[in-house]
């Protein structure tokens, strides 16, 4: 049985692919700004954006070969930390179909995989819904 979806002020649907533009950065900046204002936020990822929270990413990006001592956080760690910063106001969902299709079925445990058949439920649970980028 599907878990109830918390009511939120904004649903950010992150559909565009990482590494193609600043879309992911914009989505995280907007989410942060909304959270800083006390809003409750859902993020739903589709397409290649489901890879942002792939368990395979681990905590760090590959090493910078020009600066071996410095570590850079993976998007999975960044999202995990953001969720930990706002445990009761930020919810991250991953489209199960897209995650499976794009090789990102194995997700960090802090996010919830959801069937695309439940998408409207998430829209209904939010006062506003943006679709950011295209799959």
């Amino acid at each position: 049985m599907a878990r109830p979806i918390p009511a939120t002020d904004v649903l950010l649907n992150l559909f565009g692919a990482p590494h193609q533009s600043d879309l992911v950065t914009s989505a995280l900046r907007l989410a942060t700004a909304l959270l800083d204002r006390g809003a409750r936020v859902q993020i739903w990822t589709c397409g290649d954006a489901t890879g942002l929270t792939s368990a395979a990413l681990g905590d760090t990006k590959p090493r910078d070969l020009t600066d071996l001592e410095r570590r850079h956080p993976s998007t999975a760690l960044i999202v995990r930390n953001l969720l930990a910063d706002h445990p009761d106001r930020l919810y991250w969902y991953v489209c199960r179909f897209c995650a499976d299709d794009r090789g990102a079925a194995d997700q960090i445990p802090q996010v919830s995989k959801r069937s695309p058949f439940l998408f409207a439920e998430h829209v209904k649970a939010a006062d506003k819904a943006l679709v950011m980028g295209v799959c």
Partner: peptide
């Protein structure tokens, strides 16, 4: 039945302009 239907008819405009995506 996979997923509920919104009981009141919603009004969603879906716009596609990017084409041939693979």
């Amino acid at each position: 039945m996979p997923g509920e239907v919104i009981q009141e008819r919603a009004r969603w405009l879906l716009i596609m302009e990017k084409a041939y995506r693979g």
